[in-house]
């Protein structure tokens, strides 16, 4: 009984929320309910919406929940929503991919990997809030380091950075890089700071 009630409450909250809703946020609103129960109910809701006869589904993006329209209906929704559809140039996609897989990364490193000047495209991506400045690298010149934002995950329908498509494994070419080798992605850490910073920036309503 409570579970049914809770499911309906969750549906309302996620529906009305302006931004994707995190489990933490839902739990803080629904303190009288158990966290595990909330999680279970969200999964149930997701399963219920996972129905080709419905026009919306409950997406999990950046570890948050949001109702989104079904892919099949995209063409019809675009007729209604007259805003520009998101399109990315090859250079924007390359830069985004490199930033996503190699963050934290400096502009020089991005340019080394791409072989072209990337100042302009980095600026555009910053403006679009798909990447952000994470800080400065502790090397001479203290260059800025970039990483992807939570919005990037939302935009590309990714649950977290780990759910990025895996890079095709290519045998390592032994020789050391001429630029400082990056450590492997500390995925959890980055996502955490990413979400934290973004939520403080946007000022979580409440």
């Amino acid at each position: 009984m409570t579970a049914c009630r809770l499911k309906s409450i969750l549906e309302s909250l996620i529906f009305i929320s302006e931004e994707p809703m995190s489990l933490d946020r839902l739990c803080s609103i629904l303190q009288e309910y158990d966290r595990d129960l909330i999680r279970t109910c969200i999964l149930q809701l997701q399963a219920e919406y996972d129905n080709p006869e419905r026009g919306i589904f409950l997406a999990e993006v950046a570890k948050r929940y949001q109702f989104r329209t079904r892919e099949e209906n995209g063409g019809y929704v675009r007729r209604l929503v007259k805003t520009k559809t998101s399109r990315f140039s090859q250079s924007a996609l390359e830069t985004l991919a490199i930033t996503a897989y190699r963050q934290p990364i400096t502009r020089a490193e991005i340019e080394y990997l791409r072989g072209v000047d990337s100042g302009g495209v980095i600026k555009t991506l910053l403006e679009k809030k798909l990447i952000k400045i994470l800080g400065k690298k502790d090397i001479p010149g203290r260059p800025l380091i970039y990483g992807t934002t939570r919005y990037f995950l939302e935009m590309f329908s990714l649950r977290d950075l780990k759910s990025l498509p895996t890079l095709r494994e290519i045998e390592d070419l032994v020789v050391e890089g001429t630029y400082e080798q990056q450590e492997e992605l500390p995925l959890e850490g980055i996502l955490q700071t990413t979400t934290d910073e973004t939520s403080t920036l946007t000022g979580d309503k409440g």
Partner: peptide
């Protein structure tokens, strides 16, 4: 990777 990224369902394009 960039191509694959573009294959994702994009908010504002498919969704």
């Amino acid at each position: 990777a960039a191509l694959r990224l573009n294959d994702q369902k994009l908010l504002g394009r498919e969704l």
